[in-house]
């Protein structure tokens, strides 16, 4: 479904990715783990069109999407839930959600989607008139995910959804992603919390300093010595 091949990308003169390839099959949940600064977020930016790669290609349903502007990529069904949530703080909760469905022309459909999401995220219904900037961390994360879902995506890119959240809220995020998985949404999950990521994903890639160094089905990687040592705190397995 999504194929990333031999991507090389840089910020100015600083190379961030070199020869990165990965695949995400339809309805699969794939995770990309690695330490801070390994280039995981950069890869997501390349997929969603925020960053143009210098080399390589990105294919979605067999069509090339690298080089397209972000709005075109959203239109094809990829939603990117960015690191740090990036909610519009001075828009209300409802307005944030409306922005998520910016490309949907039917107001009725947008309303329906909001209602549907309010059923899944009841706290957002309670807060719907509030400015998003006044929400708590956990609520913000729910809003960020809900906003991304508003475009009715075929595929979701998650960038560090658990970052900065209390453990109880991390569980909550985990449940949300599990639910999306059951709804057959294809997911590419970037996480530093390798424990959670490997639990959720079917397949995993490990990234270090801009390159993929390891890949395999999640259960295999959870038993891999190197992964245990570097990313799982060396206690499990």
């Amino acid at each position: 479904m999504l194929g990333v091949e031999h991507i090389e990308a840089s910020y100015g003169h600083i190379r961030a990715l070199s020869d990165v390839s990965l695949k995400v099959e339809e309805h699969a949940t794939v995770t990309l783990i690695g330490s801070n600064g390994a280039g995981k977020s950069t890869l997501l930016k390349v997929v969603s069109g925020l960053l143009k790669p210098n080399e390589g290609k990105v294919e979605f349903y067999g069509e090339r999407i690298d080089g397209l502007s972000p709005d075109r990529i959203v239109a094809r069904g990829i939603a990117h839930c960015p690191e740090g949530r990036r909610i519009f703080p001075e828009l209300t909760v409802v307005e944030n959600l409306e922005m998520g469905a910016y490309l949907e022309r039917s107001k009725k459909l947008v309303k329906e989607r909001i209602e549907k999401l309010f059923d899944s995220f009841p706290i957002l219904r309670e807060r719907h008139k509030q400015l998003a900037g006044t929400l708590s961390g956990g609520e913000l994360q729910q809003l960020a995910i809900a906003r991304a879902l508003m475009s009715n995506p075929k595929m979701m890119l998650f960038d560090e959804p658990s970052l900065g959240l209390a453990p109880i809220l991390v569980d909550q995020v985990e449940k949300i992603i599990l639910r999306l998985k059951e709804e057959k949404i294809t997911i590419l999950l970037v996480e530093q919390n390798a424990n959670m990521a490997l639990e959720l994903a079917d397949y995993a890639y490990v990234m270090e300093t801009g390159s993929i160094i390891l890949e395999g089905p999640s259960p295999d990687l959870r038993r891999d010595e190197r992964v245990i040592k570097a990313y799982l705190g060396g206690l499990e397995g």
Binding site: V74, H80, F88, E90, E98, M99, Y102
Partner: peptide, 17 residues
């Protein structure tokens, strides 16, 4: 609303389409 969103966070706004 899209204008205000863009004022607040240009990159996030582009991710909305």
């Amino acid at each position: 609303k899209a204008m205000r969103a863009t004022f607040q966070d240009l990159e996030a706004a582009s991710l909305m389409g």
